[in-house]
Amino acid sequence: MRGGLVLIGLLLASVLLSLMIGQVMLSPVQLWTGLMTGTGPASLTLRVLRGPGIATAAGVGAVLGVSGTIFQILLRNPLAAPDIMGFMSGAGLAVICGIAFGLSLPLPLLAAVGGLLAAVAVAMLSYRRDAAQAGLTLILVGLGIGFFTSAASSFLLTRLSPQDASDAQRWLSGSLAARNWGHVTQVFGLAAILFVITALQVRALALLELGDDLATGLGTRIRRARYGLIATGVLLAAAGVAVAGPVPFVALMAGPLGMKITGARQPGGRLFSAAVTGAIVTVLADLAARSVVPGLQLPVGVMTGILGAPYLLWLLAREMEAGDL
């Protein structure tokens, strides 16, 4: 409980920090007057310049964090995350296809279809009769699907007109530039629906974590519960990808980091702390992406890539030390 409050405090602090820092520095007092009176420079910053981007970052981080944690609990492996296993680059490929073939479908739908197709491909291709090492096969096959979809994306990029290609390239590296309140509504709307669906499945997730035999014994229909959870996880990742592009490593990092801070062990607590931690990570990464190079907004995915890759390497070293990998 106390850990949860700490996390929420951290989130508020990072949002405040992110609102204050930029080309024009604002004090908390200025922000408060801007919020209350609706006039002055702070008001413009809140309404147009920084507000929507930061809100989108928080929403994207939250859905990605929950998505990663669902897979990490389900597969009992800290490496299982939609970005490692190719679901996010599948969603990205679908969106690039949409741009390349001029499909006028909404981005979330495209991203969801792409993510689900990638997940189905990973599940089918990694199926094998002997269950030993199924988790590792899953991760390797996921990496392979990721390689394939990225190759296909870069192929399509070469077929686009230069203008479309540079937009698509920017989108593919995970960008929060020029987001408006429409993006905010979209990601929070989808997040609200999907979080409710996740909450309904928390009990099944807790039982599945205990192992298939025990879960069956306790009356879970494991196959159905697992498919439901996988679908929810993929849709959550797709909701994030649709708004911000395939932002790497947030889904991978949020769960374990959140667990460290709150000490939560139960799936419910882990999902909650992952959502808040994902939001914090993405808001801070967005802040760094805006302010590292003055006068230039880098894609947020560049920052999460720079922060996340050392984490993945550390995780790898630790797993090797423990002999789990």
Partner: peptide, 17 residues
């Protein structure tokens, strides 16, 4: 494969930056 993925992601992020 994972060490490669991590280093690839890091280097390509720095390249795009």
């Amino acid at each position: 494969a994972l060490a490669g993925t991590a280093l690839n992601a890091l280097l390509l992020s720095l390249v795009s930056a």
